[in-house]
Write a protein that binds this DNA or RNA. Sequence first.
DNA 1: GCGACAG
DNA 2: ATCTTGTCGC
Length: 248
Amino acid sequence: MEGVNENEKEEAQKRSDPPELGKWAEIQDTLKKSVIAVDDFPWRLPSPQSHSHQQQLTYVGGVDVSFSKEEPSMACGSLVVLDLHHDLRLVYQDYTCLTLDVPYVPGFLAFREVLMVDGNGLLHPRGFGLASHLGVLANIPTIGIGKNLHHIDGLTQSGVRKLLEAEENRANDVITLRGSSGFIWGAAMRSTQGSLKPVFVSIGHRVSLDTAIKIVNMTCKFRVPEPIRQADIRSREHLRKHHIGMLA
DNA sequence: GCGACAG
DNA sequence: ATCTTGTCGC
């Protein structure tokens, strides 16, 4: 027991973990109880033969944060909204630049990118990543998108890539991420033809994994779904412009 | 015990 | 996350 604490303390120093880390984990464990992991929204997915009177899903938003290399505490958050019915056209964009001095700690993204969704939902060491955090706090449906895999419950990037390469899965573009515990954390998808590297999709809040995968499929022109790709490109561009102006 | 570890 | 050059392909 004493040895465990010592090891954790050493690890914390190696990574310069902030002292509030324990509180952060408590907050996550509290908020995660509010996650809704099934479809819980008023709209229906676009479909050629749906005679439902519900409003069709039309807009998909994406959020991201970029950082300045020379001024690491300077960040730019972006929110973009794309129109599903008009070739994913950009219909809204907003940016905010601010300084952040909270360090990045694996597993605690939500505390660094507080208001802004580019990160996992349930696919997280404690089952409560940024996408879920944002979803619960804002009480909105969210989907988690990861470009890399957080190694948890026996899941590894190389292991997942092996599965995607396997003969039996050659045709499958989506692989369920079932951990050693049996829990389904999310899915790895080959979002475009011939892309070797998958994207990782997980439930954020109020959207089932099944629906999340469908929506991701609707928004993929390239490997990274358009809302996140646009948010990423534009926040970086905005930061570059604004940053030059600040130095002068 | 060591290393792996979203952005 | 951010830094780089060219390069391959549609």
